Amino acid sequence: MLSRLVLRCALSCTLLCATGAGVAEPRSGCQHLRVAFYEDGALFYHAAGGGWTGIDKDVVDELVRRLGCTIEPSVDSRVRIWAGLGSGSIDMSVSAIPLPEREKIGRFVPYMTGRNFVLLHKELSGRLHSMDNFLAHPQYKIAVVKSYKHGHSYEVWLAKLREQGRVFETADHLAMMRLFKLGRVDAVMATPTTWYPLVKQEQLAGTYSVMDWAPRENMVSGLVLSRRNVDAATVARFSQAIRAMREDGTLRRIFERHTDAERAGQMLNF
């Protein structure tokens, strides 16, 4: 009887230890963070001389310098990045918009704000002057980047357009702007940090009009750090560093480096 009890206790201990060993605790500190970037206009793009540059890269580089982190950078699509954050194969990403479903897998540290605009072919701006007006003309189509969020009003509008088969989903902003340039779509959804460099790249200057159809829907974005891999104390250190970068003017200088002074001031309103 005693031997059976000892055997049961030993087996229970083995199972508990095995279960505990299989659950990884979020690590403290920022040593060897796997940081995923994604190509997006002025946020992250190829520099003229080769290599990557952009607002997101400069923000991460400054955080690395201030906090003494080491990072393993990668570049991927936004869809795969969110999957990696959820599975734990990625520790951190950039310019992410907090949403309830995303809060379950990551903690957010904001560093900029902005909003989406609709870019129309210039000859259409006189007849298309609102979301409802666009919706009322079934011949017109719009392109967006797959998995991107655009604010409540735009998402409701896009859902109605999707029901009518009038939304093209593209893998990235470059593909979206090419559809626009070729006339496959009549409009695209973009932020200023997206269209500034792409308009130059696609030689679209003077061919489009910017429509501000949701002027009150600013969206805050920033770092997202995996809940599975990064503890709350480390997230707090990132938040403190971002606050210091805002107060000492570093964030403004980074924004101005890749956009302009007016846009940089607007991006600081988070």
Rank of each mutant, 00 (worst) to 15 (best):
M1D: 07
L5N: 12
V6K: 05
R8N: 02
C9T: 11
C9Y: 06
C9G: 11
A10T: 15
L11K: 08
T14L: 15
L16K: 01
L16S: 02
L16D: 00
C17T: 13
A18I: 05
G20L: 13
A21Q: 13
G22S: 13
V23R: 14
V23S: 03
V23D: 01
A24H: 07
P26A: 04
P26N: 04
P26Q: 05
R27W: 13
Q31T: 10
V35T: 07
A36G: 10
F37Y: 15
Y38V: 05
E39M: 13
A42P: 03
L43V: 04
Y45A: 15
Y45T: 15
H46N: 07
H46K: 11
A47C: 13
A48D: 14
G54E: 08
D56F: 09
V60A: 06
D61W: 05
L67N: 11
G68R: 10
I71P: 01
P73N: 02
P73M: 02
V75K: 11
V79G: 06
R80N: 15
I81Y: 07
I81P: 03
I81C: 06
G86W: 00
S87K: 00
S89M: 00
M92I: 06
S93L: 08
S93C: 10
S93T: 15
I97K: 08
I97C: 00
P98H: 05
G106Q: 04
F108D: 00
P110A: 09
P110L: 03
P110K: 01
P110C: 03
T113Q: 13
T113P: 01
V118S: 01
L120N: 11
H121P: 04
H121I: 05
L124Q: 03
L124D: 09
S125I: 03
S125Y: 05
S125R: 06
S125P: 05
L128A: 13
M131W: 04
N133R: 08
N133C: 07
L135N: 10
Q139E: 15
K141A: 11
I142E: 01
S147P: 01
S147L: 08
S147A: 15
H150F: 14
H150P: 00
Y154V: 15
L158P: 04
R162T: 09
Q164Y: 04
V167R: 07
A171E: 12
L174P: 02
M176C: 09
M176D: 11
R178Q: 10
K181W: 06
V185A: 03
D186H: 10
M189H: 09
A190V: 15
T194A: 14
Y196M: 13
P197L: 07
Q203S: 09
G206C: 08
S209I: 00
V210A: 02
V210I: 14
V210Q: 14
D212W: 14
W213L: 08
R216Q: 13
N218F: 09
N218P: 01
N218L: 06
V220P: 03
V220W: 10
V220N: 12
S221H: 12
L225N: 12
D231T: 07
A232F: 06
A233D: 12
T234A: 14
V235N: 11
A236P: 07
A244Q: 13
A244P: 08
R246M: 07
R246I: 03
D248R: 02
T250C: 06
R253V: 02
F255Y: 14
A261G: 01
E262F: 02
R263V: 14
A264M: 13
A264V: 10
Q266L: 15
M267V: 07
M267C: 03
N269F: 03
